[in-house]
Simulated scan of single mutants.
Amino acid sequence: MAPFALLTLWKCKWKEGDFAEFRGHLKLTRLVIRQTSLTREEFDVISNLGQLRMISLADIQCSEEISCTFDKFDSLQWLRLEGSLFADKQAMAFLKNTSLKVVKLPRTSITDLTLSACATLSRMKELDLSDTAINGSGFADWKNEKSPILEHLEMRNTNLDSAGLMSLAVTVSVEWLDISHTKVTDAALQKCPQIKSLEILSLRGLTLSAAVKKHLQDRYYYVSP
């Protein structure tokens, strides 16, 4: 099989041993798999593709527990895990790669344990936690000097509450924050300290008073409806 840099697999059905052929493709740097069933052995093949710089796994099915580690990627920069298969254990196995710059975990089964683990990713610039059960308590672990300085933080449709917002505000530096359709209240936004470096704040789906909207518009460059 000829060498290639990008492999995209969608709704694939494998014969035994097919996936293992990719193990030796040293030029493969980007892997995208969607709506496909993988075995534990096939996940093990992925974990040994240490040259990968981008991994996107969405709506994957696996009837076995994923027990392999994913900390052998020397230059992994872009990670997207999507779907209920991925919980804290699986996500945190990938987050041991400190070279990560973009982490997207929408619609996964993660909790604030994974959010806490993200505090060690000092190179990370973008984090997407949308449509998860995260409430923001994990931001308490973002206090150390190695915590990332973010360009974009996506918290849309999460369980982010007023306490989580307060924790975020005192620990996180971010330029663009989306907290649309969360549990954050009008009163919490009024009391919340100014978020470091924040320019764009998205608040769709939140019920806000005119006074709070004016308060936020005075603080930040752009505040969405």
Rank of each mutant, 00 (worst) to 15 (best):
A133Y: 04
T158M: 10
A133M: 03
L121Q: 06
G136Q: 06
T185Y: 03
G83M: 07
M124K: 07
Q90F: 00
K27H: 11
L115G: 12
L115R: 09
K191M: 11
K72E: 04
K13R: 13
I66H: 07
G50I: 03
D112N: 15
F73Y: 15
D161L: 06
G164E: 08
D71C: 10
R40N: 07
A91D: 05
E145A: 14
K125M: 04
K191C: 09
S84N: 10
T132S: 11
N97H: 05
K214Y: 02
K27T: 06
R123G: 00
L129H: 07
N159D: 14
L127G: 05
D88A: 10
L100M: 06
S84Y: 04
M124A: 13
L165M: 15
Q51S: 13
Q61W: 06
K101I: 04
S209E: 01
P225Q: 10
V212S: 12
L168F: 15
R80Y: 01
R53K: 14
T29Y: 05
K96R: 14
W14R: 03
D71V: 01
R204Q: 10
D186M: 09
T111H: 05
I134P: 05
P193V: 02
M124Q: 07
E154Y: 06
I66D: 02
L168S: 10
W176A: 14
T185P: 03
T185A: 10
S75L: 04
K89G: 00
I200M: 06
S67C: 06
I55A: 04
N144D: 15
A187H: 09
L76D: 02
N144W: 13
L95D: 01
E82M: 07
V184I: 09
F94Q: 07
H25S: 09
A169W: 07
M166T: 08
V172R: 03
L201T: 04
N48W: 00
F43S: 07
V172F: 02
N48Y: 07
C192P: 06
Q190W: 11
